[in-house]
């Protein structure tokens, strides 16, 4: 038996920095000392974060940093709201990293299209970081990001940096603008219609609500991207993160150990079944 006995106990890591992104989202940077029992993880993987005494939530890595763990958390429940109240110097328990990440190896030498909706930008930000770190290894990078409103955009300063760079082509749109918004309005899939990509040699990675990912995947298929080059990241209730608690199953797939990132072709029929 080659598999190790799974880690039950969270490892305490210190909160090194907290950035408030939006009214309900924060980005936590957790110090990960050398030799930490918690691995750095790969883009698309997630950790189980434990605010002491409250509970545990599965949160994707939102940077590819090796020295720290960076997680953007939206407060939608008791645990994520407790994570949102953490301050620098606080401690948070970590188990992980878990799961199958984004296909960065397969993407080498290819154009990359990232389609992010809402908090779905967080797991894809780690892909952007990884591509920028090794820029020459990849082709063009096109990022389509849709937020609900201008105020609900994540990483606003970083978005501006990316927009100023010539080695990323990023388009940001919002579902509803406001008086100060001079950028694009409309659903994120509208950005894909004229995206400057070569369908034959690009890899698509989508993260956001399932209905958005399905629409984005179909649209890229319509533009001629082979289905095996389209990836999505799925979310389900998770308790153990190790394929043992049964919660995250979708048909025969465990989101935690088989995913959360899947080739679209492997899940598209399942995602079409209601309440599966």
């Amino acid at each position: 038996m080659s598999a190790a006995v799974t880690q039950l106990a969270p490892v305490p890591l210190r909160v090194a920095a907290v950035v408030r992104e939006t009214a309900d989202s924060v980005t936590l940077t957790l110090a990960r000392p050398d030799g930490s029992a918690v691995g750095p993880g790969a883009p698309g993987q997630f950790n189980m974060l434990y605010p002491f005494g409250i509970g545990e939530a599965a949160i994707s890595l939102s940077s590819d940093s090796a020295e720290t763990l960076v997680h953007t958390v939206r407060g939608v429940g008791a645990v994520s709201e407790a994570l949102g109240r953490l301050r620098p110097g606080d401690w948070v328990g970590v188990r992980g990293p878990f799961g199958a990440g984004w296909p960065l190896e397969a993407a080498r030498g290819r154009d990359i299209v990232l389609v992010a909706g809402g908090i779905g930008l967080a797991p894809l930000r780690s892909v952007i970081h990884a591509v920028l770190r090794d820029r020459a290894a990849f082709g063009r990078l096109f990022v389509a990001y849709g937020a609900r409103t201008p105020r609900e955009r994540l990483y606003v300063a970083e978005l501006e940096d990316w927009q100023a760079r010539s080695d990323i082509d990023i388009a940001v749109t919002v579902d509803a603008g406001d008086a100060h918004w001079s950028g694009r309005v409309g659903f994120v899939t509208a950005l894909l219609a004229n995206a400057p990509i070569d369908p034959a040699r690009c890899i698509v990675m989508a993260c956001g609500p399932e209905v958005m990912m399905r629409a984005a995947a179909r649209q890229m298929l319509g533009r001629g991207v082979p289905i095996e080059n389209v990836y999505v990241s799925l979310e389900r209730n998770m308790k153990c993160a190790a394929g043992l608690c049964g919660h995250c199953q979708v048909g025969p797939l465990f989101m935690c150990k088989d995913g959360p990132v899947f080739p679209f072709g492997r899940v598209q029929d399942l995602l079409g079944v209601r309440e599966i």
């Binding site: 309900d24 939206r74 407060g75 939608v76 909706g117 809402g118 908090i119 849709g146 937020a147 609900r148 609900e152 579902d175 509803a176 409309g186 659903f187 899939t189 509208a190 956001g208 609500p209 209905v211 958005m212 629409a215």
Partner: peptide, 15 residues
């Protein structure tokens, strides 16, 4: 299709 998805307002926290 995009207009319908936009109308769903799916990027809110509880959407």
């Amino acid at each position: 299709s995009a207009a319908r998805l936009q109308a769903m307002d799916m990027f809110g926290a509880q959407a």
